[in-house]
Amino acid sequence: MEQAATFISTSKGSAKRKLYGNISVGVSGFAALVIVSIVVVIITTVIIGGYKNFTWEFLTQDPTEGMTAGGIFPAILGTVIMTMLMSVMAVPLGTVTAIYLSEYAKPDSKFARTIRFAVNTLASIPSIVFGLFGLGFFVQFVGKGMDDVFTPGTLVWGQPNILWASMTMGLLTLPVVIVSVEEAIRTVPREVRDASLALGATRLQTIRKIVIPGSLSGILTGMILAISRGAGEVAPILFTGAAFFLPQIPHALTSQFMHLGYHIYVLSTQSANVDKTIPLQYTTTMVLLLLTFTLNISAVILRSRLRNKLK
């Protein structure tokens, strides 16, 4: 009621209101501007620092001279291989799980609610905890266990490697995939599903012909975003398989691998000569940003394309 009273204001109040209005728009606009400029500054700094080295040679050569020169090919390749392994594990599993959760599990059952809560929680768990899990479970428990059984006395699986790193990362992205795919599936209206069922389609036919095509853009977007998250994360692979320098590219699941993000981290914090490698660091960062942005932007384009197609 008080508010209502103040709304009916005199001309003097009106001037004051206008001032407040301008201030509030100005302050909030300024906040938006600050954030936008942070983004712009980071991107431009990285580009200014990195474009000079951004050459074909840099992308395709191995590091040389104690990492102070040469390219980052093994890191790019390592990132790509790890991301692919991760996607092969997380994307189908996550998609199927999301389909199960949204189409088969009773939506209000305790079971479905528990799982959904666990998935949501897992999606917000710090990535370093996944790293811990990967080290403790995959490397120490599964890997060591396999070694004890198959090759007692030698270390084959019981040490960090690309497989364990990908699996750790896969677990990290699993909830991301589940949540986004489920969200996409939920955009298919209930009525359309009912129509299909009423025509005599089975549940699986409905899923295959109506639900999945209808939410395909959302599913793909979710997958790509999950992959981009996986490609950019470093914490989970810190001790599950990433290596600072490797003379050869990963040739087996038991090899370690180089990773763009990890490369940036070690170069900027642990290399012998930080100053000397700063241009390389910038360019590596640029490549990583480029990679994740490409994934993100392709997700956006894909989404809008598929939307248009449906119209």
Binding site: P189, E191, V192, D194, A195, A198, L199, A201, L310
Partner: peptide, 23 residues
């Protein structure tokens, strides 16, 4: 069954009608 809200599949006319027989 015909529903209260028209609920065609987000497909072409042909595919909508052929959906049932195909199934």
């Amino acid at each position: 069954m015909v529903f209260q809200k028209s609920n065609p599949f987000p497909k072409s006319i042909w595919e909508n009608v052929a959906y049932g027989p195909k199934i």
